[in-house]
């Protein structure tokens, strides 16, 4: 049962991601992206990471995607139209390259046989928290600086725009 859900969900995640490649309208793309992200959240849950599943829903689907949609709407208001999908001139080599890269990764990743297949053990929020605020404490502090830097950058760039 577990496996079926897993593979089904991964299929959804992959197909939704693939859809971004071909849809025309950015809003559609954003929605497919959300679907893919949510499917991924479910995969995280199935892989024993409930905290990350929740964060994925909240942070990605909830926060970042809203930004995307916001921007799409602002830009669409101005342009008022979207073009029909036309693949760019040199798409064949690019597509072949991507395909080739995937095959390559697949071959490399499956070289070593996966030895043990046990039950899923949930690594819960507590374990993650212990790791975050134990050995990785400094990294968390550093991330705070990172977010602050991003904030400063965005504030500056957006302030400019108003002038």
């Amino acid at each position: 049962m577990h496996e079926i859900i897993f593979y089904l969900t991964s299929a959804i995640a992959v197909i939704a991601a693939g859809a971004i490649l071909i849809v025309r309208h950015p809003v559609h793309a954003a929605i497919y992206l959300i679907v893919s992200l949510l499917a991924l959240a479910l995969l995280f849950f199935l892989l024993g990471a409930p905290l990350l599943a929740a964060l994925q829903v909240m942070l990605y689907a909830g926060a970042i995607m809203v930004l995307f949609l916001f921007l799409i709407m602002m830009m669409n208001l101005r342009t008022g139209q979207n073009r029909p999908l036309s693949l760019p001139a040199g798409w064949v080599p690019a597509a072949l390259l991507a395909l080739f890269l995937w095959l390559e990764l697949l071959l490399l990743l499956t070289r070593s046989p996966s030895e043990k297949v046990g039950d899923v053990t949930t690594i819960g929020p507590k374990a993650v928290g212990n790791a975050l605020f134990g050995p990785y404490l400094l990294v968390v502090e550093a991330v705070a600086v990172l977010l602050l830097a991003a904030l400063v950058a965005v504030l500056y760039l957006s302030r400019r725009r108003q002038k």
Partner: peptide, 20 residues
């Protein structure tokens, strides 16, 4: 359960799709 290789393959597929 799900072998690591399978998850890695799906992840690789996602990565390459994004790249595409």
């Amino acid at each position: 359960m799900i072998p690591l290789n399978h998850s890695l393959a799906i992840a690789a597929l996602l990565f390459v799709l994004g790249l595409a």
